[in-house]
Design a protein around this nucleic acid. Structure first.
Lengths: 244, 244
DNA sequence: GACCCATAGTCAACGCCTCTGACAAAGCCT
DNA sequence: AGGCTTTGTCAGAGGCGTTGACTATGGGTC
């Protein structure tokens, strides 16, 4: 951070002041603090201490800027990524990294989750994931399907969580309240199953939910994998090799 | 449909013309045909043959209207929903229904995916899903976690797909092209695993991907279920009962 | 050092958006 | 018929994305 965090116009800005990197960084800062609604190109220009339209000299449109932000997020999520000794850990690691970054920048993530920019950061994670799928013993079209399923799953989940976290706090509050109050007072006759676990619904955390679905996906992945992973860590959780 | 599909202003509109139902229906029609960018309250008012600001008499804000649209989508997805004989089929059925509806109304779905309105339609599906989880032998806090994981998974996936389908056709085109061209010409030394299955990546369809991830989730669900499902349909796919 | 010129930053403006407040017609209730 | 609430209409405030004309700036050239 630092550099051009300053604000308040005084004179004209010096020539090299607005670099694409600085603009993306300030965009992220604005999105994190103000949310998606508070993010406009005029505001961004003013936050940079420049003219409301200055950003258009570096990005041809708001969408163009969003793509740069999307790539920046993927880079942030995947710095230091490498294949783990066990392919199960590799896949789980990718999913957790993406989720952590998206949760840290919800507004930016919500706006850019479904925008895939074929840039180096993305290519790297794709390669790592495909590597894990191949190690699991899949090949050819089946490996391609499996990779797409896993990759899209991570993106969809992290994007969904980010979209929720990007809502106004009051709307999030209302949603949480539904679990703690509305469902607690649910009608027994009409919704008997919900009634049965009404006390347990409120205590579920985001992390619980994520780790549960991730465990399901990974368990399914292992069950279907032609080649078992040799880890002692994962040994015995599921009986090896039944379905091809 | 029908009723006020007419357009072209002439005189003043009669009094009961603009019902909430008609407004939601026309919103959906507009979103389906024009996309999210072409959906504004002025346009909606004109499409209804009324004043550009007329909708504000029935919905206090655009967001308020979006909530109504979200609920309408859930209703559409879940009409006729009922528990299947086998709880595996129940869960899979929910997921497929939601996905089908969201794909049919991508723009509307993308805007409203993360907005959960605690209305009857939603309560019904929640109850059905929890019923399936209980049937699988889960109980208490574990059942709550499992339900949230499955439910949020469906919503995240369907929402993610809708968000992609809601993009401009040219952006979707660009994304598809990445799989068919960019990844086909990937550098062997830098991304060896991707290179290995480069020919297979383009042939993967949306349905392939969805059915693959759904199969993974369901396989994981079955493996972890305390009580096996008695179906002959699902028999033998996974050896029953190893991990509690 | 004087000149040139591409370009980064500025400014004014267009059209569209969300949303508000004042107003008028329409239907209900007595 | 008179009054009251509701519903549709209208004018407008303030913001956004984007464009085209302008103007200062700083690097390259002689």
């Amino acid at each position: 951070m630092a550099s051009t965090t300053a604000g308040r116009r005084s004179g004209r800005l010096r020539r090299g002041s607005l670099t694409p990197e600085a603009i993306v960084a300030e965009s992220l800062r604005l999105l994190d603090t103000e949310g998606a609604d508070g993010f406009s190109l005029p505001k961004l220009g003013r936050a940079l201490g420049a003219d409301p339209t200055a950003v258009y000299r570096h990005f041809s449109s708001k969408d163009d800027l969003m793509l740069a932000i999307a790539d920046r997020l993927i880079e942030e999520a995947m710095t230091g990524l490498a294949a783990q000794p066990c392919w199960i850990d590799t896949v789980a690691d990718c999913a957790r990294r993406l989720r952590t970054t998206y949760r840290a920048h919800p507004a930016a993530a919500a706006l850019s989750a479904s925008r895939t920019t074929r840039r180096p950061a993305e290519m790297r994670i794709v390669n790592v994931l495909i590597g894990a799928v191949l190690e699991a013993g899949f090949s050819g079209a089946e490996a391609a399907r499996m990779y797409r399923a896993l990759g899209d799953f991570m993106l969809a989940w992290a994007g969904g969580e980010a979209a929720f976290l990007a809502l106004d706090p009051k709307q999030q509050e209302a949603d949480e309240a539904a679990w703690t109050r509305a469902y607690l007072a649910v009608d027994r006759a009409e919704y008997p199953h919900t009634w049965q676990i009404r006390d347990d619904l409120a205590g579920v955390t985001d992390d619980d939910i994520f780790e549960t679905i991730l465990a399901l996906v990974m368990a399914g992945f292992r069950v279907r994998a032609p080649r078992p992973c040799g880890c002692q860590k994962h040994a015995g959780q599921v009986p090896p090799g039944t379905t091809p």
